[in-house]
């Protein structure tokens, strides 16, 4: 799954720095940023502001992946989780620095910066967030 360069590049702010959006109408935070608030609909158009998440959250559910596309060969098995951020919005992320058997629902985690993949040995390297146990 090679990512075209601009396709990854245009998401850098969200992937590096967890930049989402906040609805100017109801205050709901979305990640990645949305042009329309799912709660307010038309009322929110033109009122969506850029908003940076604090990077802290809680594990809502998780899995350990054993069968993965070849670009993840090096990391197998690895843990994926859905994390509810302190701002309320949820995202899907890899969990690192933790053994699969030690992951728990409700566990506090924080964002970190890692390599997500690359377009082969000669291609562009993609970076972005992964999460680790808070305080690790």
């Amino acid at each position: 799954m090679t990512q075209a360069i601009p396709r990854f590049w245009r998401e850098i702010q969200s992937r590096y720095n967890l930049v989402g959006s906040k609805c100017g109408s109801c205050g709901k935070v979305d990640f990645p940023p949305r042009a329309v608030c799912p709660d307010c609909g038309r009322k929110s158009i033109g009122k969506m502001q850029s908003f940076k998440l604090c990077g802290k959250g809680t594990v809502v559910t998780y899995t350990t992946i054993y069968d993965a596309p070849s670009q993840f060969d090096m990391q197998k098995p690895y843990v994926m989780a859905i994390v509810e951020m302190d701002e309320g919005v949820r995202l899907t992320t890899q969990l690192i620095n933790v053994k699969p058997e030690d992951v728990k629902i409700g566990m506090k985690v924080q964002a970190t910066f890692r390599k997500l993949g690359q377009d082969g040995e000669a291609g562009v390297i993609h970076y972005g967030y992964k999460f680790r146990p808070a305080g690790s």
Partner: peptide, 25 residues
Amino acid sequence: DQEWESVFGATFAGLYAMMARRHMH
């Protein structure tokens, strides 16, 4: 979602597995 699930390593089975885990919980 290719941009916000798959890119990070969530496979199709993985996404269903996370629903299963939550259902178990």
